[in-house]
Amino acid sequence: MRILRHTILVLLVAMLAACASGGGSESIPPAPQAASVEDYAIGIDDVVQVAVWRNPELGITVPVRPDGRISVPLVGDVMAAGKTPSEVAADLQDKLSAYVRDPQVAVILTDLRSHEYLSRVRVTGAVRTPISIPHRPGMTVLDAVLAAGGVNEFAAPDRSSLYRRNGGQTTSYAIRLDRIINRGDLSTNFTVAPGDIITVPERAF
């Protein structure tokens, strides 16, 4: 019994010590999740590829017409604009089920023409050249800031923020830009997504 009590006491002391050591550490903001192409609504002039498993003759690659529709073999016109690829695929599966047994449809965006403006990344504030640049896969916060010429002499880089719009809400993420550039701390060197805005504030005088 005495040994059991001693063991419990040791465990409690260890837990309290862990909590105390963690309480003084600086919290790291959660990393934003990189947006997938599947999250973006298809727009007019975007080029989509439709593939039907085991039915290659039904596959097409076409641009979205000005009326927002695409024409698919067997089912005819289908609304694509304003929907995600997965939503269009679900619509096609439903319509094709009248002609094909258990259709498996994949819709892939091959050319995001309508998103040329929306998919840009913008860097504003205390940088040498505020810019709006095309998004590239794998682009990070540091890539975007360097493209803007880096921060200027008035910047407060460790108070920088990344703003990302998700649906109808905008979420901000703290960026420790000074630590990224001068200390090699990449914990907040987030991968940017189309439409992101990076803001570098000026320091208070």
Rank of each mutant, 00 (worst) to 15 (best):
residue 57 E to S: 05
residue 159 R to Q: 13
residue 132 S to C: 00
residue 20 A to Y: 12
residue 55 N to H: 14
residue 74 L to M: 13
residue 112 L to E: 10
residue 91 D to I: 12
residue 68 G to W: 07
residue 188 T to Y: 04
residue 115 H to T: 02
residue 122 R to T: 15
residue 47 V to D: 06
residue 24 G to T: 12
residue 74 L to A: 10
residue 113 R to E: 03
residue 102 D to R: 10
residue 180 I to E: 02
residue 178 D to C: 01
residue 30 P to V: 15
residue 58 L to R: 07
residue 144 A to I: 06
residue 144 A to H: 04
residue 34 A to V: 11
residue 173 Y to C: 03
residue 110 T to Q: 13
residue 77 D to H: 10
residue 121 V to K: 02
residue 6 H to L: 15
residue 87 E to R: 01
residue 12 L to N: 03
residue 54 R to A: 01
residue 38 E to D: 13
residue 10 V to D: 00
residue 175 I to H: 06
residue 77 D to I: 09
residue 186 L to P: 07
residue 32 P to A: 11
residue 82 G to Q: 04
residue 54 R to C: 00
residue 14 A to R: 02
residue 110 T to N: 11
residue 71 S to I: 14
residue 150 G to E: 10
residue 154 F to D: 06
residue 166 N to S: 13
residue 202 E to I: 05
residue 29 P to I: 07
residue 70 I to W: 05
residue 148 A to S: 11
residue 71 S to N: 15
residue 52 V to K: 01
residue 21 S to L: 13
residue 45 D to T: 15
residue 2 R to I: 13
residue 163 Y to D: 04
residue 55 N to T: 09
residue 43 G to C: 08
residue 35 A to L: 09
residue 41 A to F: 01
residue 136 R to V: 10
residue 191 T to H: 06
residue 103 P to Q: 04
residue 140 T to D: 10
residue 204 A to G: 00
residue 16 L to K: 00
residue 169 Q to R: 14
residue 203 R to N: 12
residue 74 L to N: 08
residue 128 R to M: 04
residue 95 K to E: 08
residue 201 P to S: 08
residue 92 L to Y: 00
residue 90 A to N: 05
residue 77 D to F: 12
residue 107 V to M: 07
residue 14 A to S: 11
residue 183 R to A: 14
residue 80 A to C: 08
residue 170 T to A: 08
residue 9 L to E: 08
residue 151 V to K: 07
residue 4 L to Y: 11
residue 163 Y to M: 11
residue 196 D to M: 10
residue 13 V to M: 15
residue 56 P to V: 03
residue 159 R to P: 02
residue 145 V to C: 05
residue 160 S to P: 05
residue 41 A to R: 13
residue 7 T to P: 00
residue 21 S to I: 10
residue 129 T to D: 04
residue 43 G to R: 07
residue 42 I to W: 01
residue 49 Q to V: 06
residue 71 S to F: 12
residue 179 R to D: 15
residue 186 L to Q: 09
residue 193 A to M: 09
residue 140 T to K: 13
residue 193 A to D: 14
residue 1 M to A: 13
residue 101 R to P: 03
residue 1 M to P: 12
residue 39 D to Q: 14
residue 169 Q to T: 15
residue 155 A to T: 04
residue 56 P to D: 03
residue 25 S to A: 04
residue 161 S to D: 09
residue 171 T to A: 10
residue 67 D to G: 11
residue 74 L to I: 14
residue 160 S to K: 02
residue 88 V to K: 03
residue 14 A to L: 14
residue 164 R to Q: 11
residue 183 R to F: 11
residue 195 G to C: 10
residue 125 G to M: 12
residue 46 D to P: 04
residue 35 A to K: 05
residue 162 L to P: 00
residue 92 L to E: 01
residue 48 V to Q: 09
residue 136 R to D: 03
